[in-house]
Amino acid sequence: MKVKRLTELSLMTGISLSLFALEMLIPNPFPIPGIKLGLANIVTVFAIYRYSAKETLLVLLARILLSSMFSGSLTTLLYSLTGGLLCFSGMLLLRKWVNEKHMYISSVIGAILHNIGQISAAIAVTKTMAIISYLPFLLVSGCLAGAFTGLCAQMAAGRIRGRN
């Protein structure tokens, strides 16, 4: 891996961790586990369209591991990891299908997959089917948050392309 690429990817990881830290400071009005804005996903959506699958995966894994260490809840690592990887695979498949101008749609589908992954992991770990009743709430918030983060990534991509 070239030094320039490595630096760019490290920068991506750094930005996503900063966004994660920023989001921790915003009080969450919804007392439901798993509902969040997911600002860090802006970087994932952006990276999917800019870097190779392997490079994006590296950024994603580094961010998920480090962010759960920062937030001090390693128990939720498994849920984020399952959701994150499912979301990543979905967006990777959509990369060829949806062009860069419609990134936000990939992001919404990614968010839906993320929620499904999260809930499945939570059900598997706690062996409690009742958790599935959280899924509709997560999906509503996921679709909205996914569209928002997708639009952010799309705008960032537009600006960066203009400069290069």
Binding site: P33, S73, T75, T76, Y79, A122, V125, T126, T128, A130, I131, S133, Y134
Partner: peptide
């Protein structure tokens, strides 16, 4: 009745 309280870190429902 369809919306349990869940504490994921402590595996409590």
């Amino acid at each position: 009745g369809a919306f349990p309280i869940v504490c994921l870190p402590n595996h409590l429902v």
